[in-house]
Design a protein around this nucleic acid. Structure first.
Lengths: 241, 241
DNA sequence: TGTACATCAGTGAACGCGCGTTCACTGATGTAC
DNA sequence: TGTACATCAGTGAACGCGCGTTCACTGATGTAC
């Protein structure tokens, strides 16, 4: 039995640093070429090391891809959390808008990484379990906002009690929603939970539509259109008005 | 000046047939490997011809890709039009649901081709102008439904006059919408036009979310959830209730 | 504190593979007189 | 209707390239006594 060293050894520190450098180089490649053309050899070349050396850090190309995916989820989640946390806690709609806007800004600035996580899956690559938690950060933000807004309603802190009236979801959907509510420990009407799922879908759907070029010719002021759209979504969640 | 032959020559017929065969083989490859790994050589191999022979039909790999994209847009548009046309003209919500459902079914059955047109763009490939028209078929269906529903309102054929009340779009968005309304020759309130754009976004966004795996763990009955979601979207368009 | 051994990072060559595209060519089909 | 020429489809070899991964190796760092 060996005891873990108190201070990381030179070897360990070097390992961490070089791992970071490999990921950084891979990210640069990703930006230029897209995920499909990401090449271990090119990464090694950029770092001035033998291509075989990369295998000391990532056992396979897919493992490197996975690391990039996890990083991307974390980065976009982090950006969203940062933005959301700086808004007055009782301004629910604004919290949602800050979240949505931050997500979109990150996506615009990090197109390829956004595509990596929200675009079409890389063929032949199956996302492993490790990506699940970081992927949940943004939806969990939304859960937090809605949860707070409901407490707000009860104590009268300002959330709208005139929530839009929705059709009751059909039974099959209710079952899914009930299970989801239990996982999230969120006790809300099924229609509202469904609305949250749709909000999350609308957020990503809208950003993808813009980035993938399907609004070319219809919209020119993407900022304004996006904000308007997300305001509509927010008000359907009963976050204001 | 040569006159066009009345009946296509053997050569012309052969050319058309082989062009079709090349596209079919390419489509098969697409299904297996995704757009990024589509290879001219592999297509030629499958057809038992020299790889150089393919160049008599498509000057470049990208040209072949473009052909597949156009075909995909046409196929999904065709499927949608078929489904929509078989619904009672005055059942506006049902027309919308038939459209949406047909689009989703086609997407589920033709995953890769769907990804080709609605997933992340193939890096290094710029969609040429020829893809614009076929891409418009589905949104134009939606325009038709809403247009008819408005006439319905006037003549009292059954469309709801209790259209959901929307916030007025901000000015920057209004400008875009006005231009869009002129192009479509559709004279409707800006908020409704915006809602149509959002419906189109929601349709594709929802299908992509499902296909790209972002609902795994939250939804199990995709059919029911999708239908519910599109019903909500439809009612926001004032198509019923 | 010094030494012997184990662990690990990195090298460079090699394996086996596939790709897009070009080019000079042969032979079949189409066209003009 | 028959012949001469032009057009076109398809061949096979080649160019120049890049890829992921393995393997036997050297030399530096870490560990146990």
């Amino acid at each position: 039995v060996t005891t873990a060293p108190v201070s990381r050894s030179a070897r360990t520190r070097a390992r961490e640093e070089i791992t970071r450098e490999i990921k950084a180089a891979a990210r640069r490649q990703l930006v230029e070429l897209g995920a499909g053309d990401l090449s271990l050899r090119a990464v090694a070349r950029e770092l001035g090391m033998a291509s075989s050396a990369v295998y000391r850090y990532f056992a396979t190309r897919d493992e490197l891809l996975t690391a990039l995916i996890v990083d991307a989820y974390d980065a976009i989640g982090e950006a969203a959390e940062q933005a959301e946390s700086s808004v007055d806690r009782t301004a629910f709609l604004e919290r949602w808008l800050a979240t949505a806007t931050a997500v979109r800004s990150w996506a615009v600035e990090n197109r390829r990484e956004y595509e990596l996580i929200f675009g079409s899956p890389v063929p032949g690559y199956a996302a492993p379990q490790v990506t699940v938690d970081p992927a949940a950060r943004i939806p969990l933000l939304l859960v937090g906002i809605v949860r707070d807004s409901l407490v707000g309603t009860v104590t009268g802190t300002g959330a709208s009690r005139e929530r839009a009236r929705h059709a009751e979801p059909p039974e099959a959907v209710q079952a899914d929603l009930a299970a989801l509510g239990r996982i999230l420990e969120l006790d809300v009407p099924p229609a509202l939970l469904a609305e949250m799922l749709m909000a999350w879908t609308a957020l990503i759907g809208s950003i993808s539509f813009e980035l993938f070029g399907h609004l070319v010719g219809s919209v020119t002021d993407y900022d304004a259109y996006f904000r308007y759209q997300m305001t509509e979504v927010g008000s359907r969640l009963g976050l204001s008005r």
